Simulated scan of single mutants.
Amino acid sequence: MEVFNQNGSIVNARFYLTDPYAGKPSKPQWLKVQASQNNHPYLTWDANQEPDVLSGGSYKVEKYSTYEVGWFQLATTTNTFYEDLTETICPLGQQCESGHWVRYRVKAVDNTAKVSVPSDSVMKMVLGGAPDKISVDPPSSEMPTEYSLMQNYPNPFNPVTTISYLLPKNGLVTLKVFDILGTEVTSLVNETQEAGSYSVTFNASQLPSGIYFYTLTSNNFMSTKKLILLK
């Protein structure tokens, strides 16, 4: 492009095009939780408008409960809604003396696996008493020294189970589920994660009963285990 000054002479000019979405996605907005038709916590939030989230991006749903140690990943979804089938909301107008609070938050993941900061969290009272604090193991302060993919629990399951794994170093992590023919049925994790221990909830409510396999890959590590869905 040529640029002229007031005298009509050409002057040198440089133009730099910057990508406003080159960094991490913005945090998801307007997270809400209400009761679904089956009285489970039903989360909704506004879609991120970054092109790299709208095209090929996803969202991480995270949960904190007195049953768990800190925040953990509940699910990965491309939708802007999620129903937590593992909890039941205390009915309106009834005492919920044995209930406990759970918190939810959401992170946006773009199509290059960059993750946003978490959304503002929301809370809901659900049925079920919290365990005695002395029976809850505190989180380990030691970092994992080797990769490990745990057996899902429960197994067999219907329709929700938890998969845990250990990462001794940072890296791109994928956790995928395949049917018995080797066809991928869902991708639970596809992002860069720091070293540490992780737990992911797999909801198979849309899948038929049968034998499935889940595979964890990170750096040069790969491990596969079998899980059984019984409905």
Rank of each mutant, 00 (worst) to 15 (best):
V102E: 01
G129D: 03
W101R: 10
F178T: 14
S119Y: 08
A130R: 10
A204E: 01
V61Y: 00
Y64R: 02
T186Y: 14
V61P: 08
A195F: 09
L230R: 10
W71Y: 08
L167D: 11
W45V: 06
I180D: 14
V185A: 00
P91K: 00
A47E: 04
S55N: 15
D19K: 07
K124E: 14
A204V: 02
C96F: 04
V3A: 13
K60V: 09
M1R: 06
N7H: 14
N190H: 08
D120Q: 13
W30Y: 11
N38C: 03
I89M: 01
Y67G: 01
W101I: 06
C90P: 15
D46M: 07
C90L: 03
S140T: 07
M1G: 15
A195T: 07
P138H: 05
E142R: 12
G128M: 02
L167S: 12
G56E: 05
L167T: 06
P91E: 00
T217K: 12
E184Q: 03
A35P: 02
V69M: 10
L127R: 10
V115W: 00
Y21F: 12
F4M: 15
L188P: 01
F4H: 14
P159W: 00
K27F: 08
I211L: 06
M123I: 03
Q94W: 04
Y153F: 13
T224S: 13
V177H: 15
G129V: 04
V102F: 06
G129I: 04
S197A: 13
S141C: 10
G70C: 03
S55K: 09
S209D: 14
C96A: 04
I180M: 13
T76K: 02
E146Q: 15
A47W: 01
M1D: 15
S9C: 14
S197M: 08
R103F: 12
A130S: 07
L216R: 09
V177Y: 13
S58I: 04
N111F: 12
F202G: 03
L216W: 05
P51W: 05
N12D: 15
P28K: 02
L207F: 07
P154S: 05
V33Y: 12
E191C: 03
T217C: 10
L188W: 05
K107E: 02
S65R: 13
G57P: 13
Y42Q: 01
S199E: 10
S164L: 12
Y147I: 11
N48I: 13
Y82C: 05
K32L: 11
V117T: 00
Y147H: 14
F202P: 04
G99K: 01
P91S: 01
G210M: 00
F157M: 05
L172T: 09
Q94S: 03
V61G: 03
L43R: 11
P131K: 07
L207P: 02
A204I: 01
W101V: 06
M123L: 09
L17G: 12
S141D: 11
S119Q: 03
Y198Q: 04
P139L: 01
L127G: 09
A22G: 06
A13M: 09
Q151N: 12
E184W: 00
N7V: 14
K226I: 04
T66C: 14
Q37R: 08
Q94V: 00
N38M: 06
